[in-house]
Nucleic acid binder design. Structure first.
Length: 564
RNA sequence: UGUCCGAUGGUGUAACUGGCAACACGUCUGAUUUUGGUUCAGAAGAGUCCAGGUUCGAGCCCUGGUCGGACAACCA
């Protein structure tokens, strides 16, 4: 059986459909997909799943993938959003090869199709208000009823529709509706609205139109126009499929049809994916903009320090299916750590400094220690880090009265300073009033210098450190999950904002080794023993700013119970 | 009280025309380690929503339930 084959990779259900289609030589064996966002917000990791899917399928089957903006509602859409979407898709590493389209590119054709429907007696102009039409539509368990304007003549409908287009009527006074079936169990088939009057200027077509097609009247036809073979979308559009089919069947004679396939959208634990809710967080000032590193937006993840590779890897790992899912955010975090582990320079930074004075080390002496940049990759070389009599270590790396399994600095204990010497704690200096440890006096063993005769001696722990004299101050933003609840939207009785984690952002001033003096925004590092960090765009030469992408696995935190 | 869709370890996905339920994340052990990271070795954890049926044999097919989701915007 092939399942046992080394190279066998199970097909997801969409790939299975495509391979069947290919086998049957459907659409001359073309595979053409598209990613069709509405430019009314920023893209998030859920969109990334769709982008990776659509572009990934095209690549896998030597096909094409278009980027198309479904921009049929000028009151909600903005140029700013199309720009950010274009940037995000590009950043993720995908190329639409010049096929960037807009549903608004097809407004003329769509209009002609609407007239065709009228002429064929399949559409009519309705003068009723949205409210009345809604009431007439019935409910999911009771059928709707026909509009009193249902039987207007073709001539009257055509005349009215043309006058709608000419701008003779105010917003909301008339709509064009299809005549399908007001009693259909599928609500979307109960004489849906095709065109509405909107005296609004469009980001693309300006003031050319004052009537705009509904998404449903534009989407399927746009796919048809572009020659899309597999229209991949999320589950909630499943009920729209019969409607798209109805439009095409009533408008198009050829047998070619885009085939819609629905998959379950991504849900990620401890965050939210709803564009509207995300907008609330941004506009309510709960976060600092669409690219806040706590948000699951692509721009937020980018600023947080995620790489396109890690997101694509993640998209691949979560798979595609039709059942509801809630992906553990740990998988996303694993995806970046795995990527960054291979790529990033290891550097030393102390986030919560404790002064250490090495009493037997000559005052004023500076030694340049050679540190390996990445033990995973020797080709990344090494760098020099200055060592002096006074250094800083992490406060958590010292305990005056340590438990058994504490392998770090404590009175009388000896530890290794990464890339430097072994030091032994001889004395603890405390603040007289608070009793807080403010300094530790140590002695070092000159024989234990890295590479030296005694450097292979066994010690319990290795600490990172920064020279007090050379350390650079840096603002470090420590991010944690934005919500305390795994599924903030999963509580019908509670507002999701109640679950916002008040500690989702902690800003500290740390000290970093001097080799980081000239870093540029988006450069990524591993701060040894702490985590992966990324230079924030706010960072300036005289004020470095780092974002913590994700902490390293911390088994001590688990043992000591200090974990999340 | 409608129509459609779905249900496999804690999470996600797989098991091809029925043939010993697999992989990843997570969890736990141990080894290695100049990062309590990485890596390596191993373990625990589901008998596939329930009840019937077909079959030598059902996660997969059939019937009936249960539970979950989607659908009633001049939003997409």
């Amino acid at each position: 059986m092939n399942t046992k084959d080394e190279n066998y990779k199970a097909l997801n259900f969409i790939e299975a459909i495509i391979e069947d289609d290919l086998q049957e030589e459907k659409n001359e064996k073309r595979v053409h997909t598209r990613f069709p966002p509405e430019p009314n917000g920023y893209l998030h990791i859920g969109h990334a799943k769709s982008i990776c899917l659509n572009f990934g399928l095209a690549k896998k089957y030597n096909g094409m993938c278009n980027l198309r903006f479904d921009d049929t509602n000028p009151t909600k859409e903005e140029e700013e959003f199309v720009d950010s979407i274009v940037e995000d898709v590009k950043w993720l590493g995908f190329d639409w090869e010049g096929r960037l389209f807009y549903a608004s590119d097809y407004f003329d054709q769509l209009y002609k199709w609407a007239e065709k429907l009228i002429i064929n007696g399949k559409a009519f102009v309705d003068d009723q208000s949205a409210e009345v039409i809604g009431d007439q539509r019935g409910t999911v368990t009771t059928p709707g009823t026909e509009s009193p304007f249902y039987n207007r003549s073709v001539e009257e409908n055509l005349n009215l529709f043309r006058r709608m287009k000419a701008g003779e009527f105010p917003d909301g006074s008339k709509v064009l509706r299809a005549k399908i079936d007001t009693t259909s169990p599928n609500m979307l088939l109960r004489d849906p609205v095709l065109y509405r009057i909107l005296h609004a200027s469009h980001h693309n077509t300006g003031d050319k139109w004052c009537i705009y097609p509904m998404y449903d009247f534009a989407h399927g036809q746009s796919d048809y126009i572009e020659g899309i073979t597999h229209s991949i979308c999320t589950l909630e559009f499943e009920v729209h499929r019969p409607l798209y089919d109805w439009f095409l069947d009533n408008l198009i004679e050829t047998k070619y049809r885009p085939q819609q396939i629905e998959f379950a959208r991504l849900n990620l634990s401890y965050t939210i994916m709803s564009k509207r809710k995300l907008m609330e967080l941004v506009e309510g000032g709960f976060v600092n903009g669409w690219d806040d590193p706590r948000l699951p937006t692509i721009s937020g993840l980018r600023r947080r320090g995620y790489t396109p590779e890690s997101i694509r890897y993640f998209a691949d790992k979560i798979g595609v299916a039709r059942r509801d899912n809630m992906i553990d955010v740990a998988l996303l975090e694993h995806s970046v750590k795995d990527d960054l582990n291979k790529k990033t320079l290891r550097v030393m930074a102390v986030l919560n400094p404790l002064r250490v004075v090495i009493t037997n080390y000559p005052e004023g002496k500076v030694e340049e220690m050679e540190l390996v940049n990445n033990p995973e990759d020797e080709t990344m070389g090494s760098r020099k880090v200055p060592f002096t009599r006074e250094i800083f270590i992490e406060k958590d790396d010292f305990m005056e009265d340590p438990p058994k399994k504490f392998f770090r600095l404590a009175p009388g204990a000896e530890v290794r300073l990464k890339g430097a010497y072994f030091i032994k704690c001889e004395e603890v200096v405390k603040d007289e009033t608070t009793g807080e440890v403010i300094e530790v006096k140590c002695t070092y063993d000159p024989e234990t210098k890295s590479g030296g005769p005694q450097s292979n001696r066994k010690v319990k722990g290795t600490l990172h450190w920064v020279s007090a004299q050379h350390g650079l101050k840096a603002e470090v933003r420590l991010y944690d999950r934005l919500f305390l609840d795994e599924d903030p939207l999963g509580h019908p009785d509670k507002d999701f904002q109640e679950f916002i984690n008040p500690g989702s952002l902690k800003t500290v001033t740390g000290l970093i080794e001097p080799s980081l003096r000239n870093v540029k925004p988006f450069e990524k590092f591993q701060f040894i023993r702490l985590g992966y960090f990324c230079v924030d765009p706010d960072s300036k030469e005289d004020k470095l700013v780092f974002n913590r992408t994700v902490p390293l696995r911390d088994s001590w935190a688990k043992i000591s119970g200090k974990g999340r």
